[in-house]
Nucleic acid binder design. Structure first.
Lengths: 99, 99
DNA sequence: TGCTTATATGTGTATTTACTCATATATTCT
DNA sequence: AGAATATATGAGTAAATACACATATAAGCA
């Protein structure tokens, strides 16, 4: 019976990535900072639903939100996160390198 | 409204990582091939539960199972997967580099 | 052929969670 | 101040799922 550290926290982290609309939001952001309204337009999700997911992502540190006037711009906190997401995606979809 | 590819499949993939006992099983395997009974001993999970999770991991290609006598040895399919898991873990737990 | 060990699987249940609706807050403009 | 816009949040609901229990399959051994 081995201790592998806090896998609960890590699994909650993966849980956030385990939802296609949250991935959609993260990929929609990419390396840019964009207001919620732009995310809504990109994804076609409802305003309520985008805010619902952004809250979870924000609380876990997967996105940062910065207020600018009446807009809130969201960004990935770290370019390395996008890199990791892309690596995982390539591992998972090795056939799709050509489209 | 942009198409970011098949994020449904990718999210189902992350879903598999989004459970602490499945992470426990994956880390218990590491780069070795081990029989189910060893996983049970390592993790302290019930036999039923380990088989339950191994099936999901197997069906998604996150582990491979090879029969040897009355044992079934499970392995990660690819050392790069463990590397990715470790990178994600480091990204998520940057403070824990010293224990 | 039984008996035991190793692993898999179908069913039922309790918990989690993604989503919508209604509403709240905050900012800008007139 | 009042209206319009941008975003956030609480409550309720339907669907997904982790787990245990019981049982099935399959291999090795007496």
């Amino acid at each position: 019976m081995i201790d592998y550290g806090d896998l609960n926290a890590l699994s909650r982290f993966y849980q956030l990535l385990a939802e296609h609309n949250r991935l959609l939001i993260l990929y929609s952001l990419g390396l840019e900072c964009r207001p919620v309204s732009a995310i809504i337009a990109d994804t076609g999700l409802s305003q309520t639903n985008v805010s619902f997911h952004l809250r979870k992502l924000r609380e876990a540190g997967l996105v940062r939100g910065e207020k600018n006037g009446s807009f809130v711009f969201y960004c990935l906190p770290d370019p390395e996160l996008l890199d990791l997401l892309n690596r995982f995606r390539e591992w998972h979809e090795p056939a799709n390198t050509d489209h």
